[in-house]
Design a protein around this nucleic acid. Structure first.
Lengths: 239, 239
DNA sequence: CAAGTAAACTTGTATATACAAGATAAAGAC
DNA sequence: GTCTTTATCTTGTATATACAAGTTTACTTG
């Protein structure tokens, strides 16, 4: 499945850490030892360890070794790019999605600006309400370039647009720029969500890019403040 | 200064991108060409390009090359670990810091839990109000293990604790776990901040770790919601 | 001309080697 | 015993080589 050697080693080691076989604050075997056990070169081991380090599984220390970090308290990875469905699954909550709007039209001028296009392109306009434990918590407003996502249906929007894009269409989502702010709710927010008296909304704006660096989606995910949580693992890198 | 070859190459290329010498949506020279111009091996070039990719400067595409991304709209890096001072400097705002509390005492039980220590250690308790454009916007509550930060003074807290830790003490901050939530303001928030009628507070909780994976600081940064903004660049990696 | 094929790019993976730099443990000097 | 030095671990950097895999270009073939 995962064909790459260093990814397989990463998978194996990260699983061992998650399962507690490799315990927190213990040292990993040295790179040379790992190279022997996995029948790989040291450089390949180092690629796997780099991944572990980036994802917060280990901390590397020159001269000493790689210590296993306590992942149990961290790993609530809204960090990175995780869809609503993946998240709800992980939490074991019963969550439903109501598709309020699904229409295709020419993009407006400000959207054209957002997508940095010279000519206005056709675009899908999807509005969805996310319900968790029978409360309408999240309002998702998606704008997807229809030239990339031809046959979008209500059924797909109810399940997962991401799954459709990646598995059905074979497109690869590569990276995203996100911005989190807190704003006053709009009329639409008040209509569609169970605000429960709160008069602020957490807004997550995402610009989503494909493999070839073309932006194909803009999303505003609007959350009721008491149900919002964002967790991040950040390494201090060379600026 | 930066001694490593691949970091110097990274610095040079990122500077060229920021200065517009390498323009967005253009292709970088191929890895082999770069290896020649920088008098380096291809692997060294690849390390530099990996950094560029991770920081959102370029997008690599197998078989094609590396395309320069439009960094101008992204780079408001609250993402990662940036201190209040660095941020204020970058925005060119006149910002002041008022040290409300600075005291050393034994840590409470819940703090001991946070730091995952068996015995209670001595800790610095710092409370600071951050003022921007004559408005009290941010309340920072810092808890630093005093065994690592011996001589903390009011003057240091008014400037930058980070600068003191990294430059004076020579400690290296390595990574942090952050959590963003939105909460009701406490009495302290109402007292110390200019809430301007807002009845919510954006809370950024940070666990800060050193080089050797010891946690030495816990911080709660409490922001007035209208002045809060968090920007993130996230790559979709192997999960 | 059109379609398909082959060659020549590009980046991705894997390996081997060499030395530098930091940390630790063992051996030696006093 | 105590301190210093040395050896030997560890990870970090840099290089060279080989081949795999994806893209583009040029060429051949019908």
């Amino acid at each position: 499945m995962t064909k790459n050697k260093f990814q397989m080693i990463y998978d194996d080691l990260s699983r061992q850490i998650q399962d507690g076989i490799l315990k927190a604050s213990e040292l990993l075997p040295s790179e040379n030892e790992l190279a022997e056990t996995y029948n790989a070169s040291r450089e390949t081991i180092r690629k796997a360890l780099k991944l572990l380090s980036e994802h917060g599984y280990i901390q590397k220390m020159q001269g000493k070794g790689s210590v296993v970090l306590d992942i149990t308290k961290i790993n609530f990875p809204i960090s990175g790019l995780v869809s609503f469905r993946e998240l709800a699954d992980k939490m074991g909550k019963r969550a439903t999605t109501d598709v309020v709007t699904l229409e295709e039209r020419l993009m407006s001028e400000d959207l054209q600006e957002y997508f940095q296009l010279k000519e206005a392109d056709s675009i899908w306009n999807v509005t969805r309400v996310r319900e968790i434990d029978h409360e309408k918590i999240i309002l998702d407003k998606d704008f997807l370039r229809s030239s990339f996502v031809p046959g979008l249906t209500k059924e797909i929007c109810e399940k997962s647009i991401y799954a459709y894009i990646e598995k059905e269409l074979g497109l690869t989502i590569s990276f995203a720029k996100k911005e989190i702010t807190v704003e006053k709710p709009t009329e639409e927010d008040r209509e569609l969500l169970d605000l429960n008296g709160y008069d602020m909304i957490v807004v997550v704006k995402s610009h989503v890019y494909l493999d070839d660096a073309t932006m194909f989606q803009y999303t505003e995910s609007r959350h009721r403040p008491d149900k919002f949580r964002f967790v991040d693992f950040a390494r201090r890198t060379t600026r």
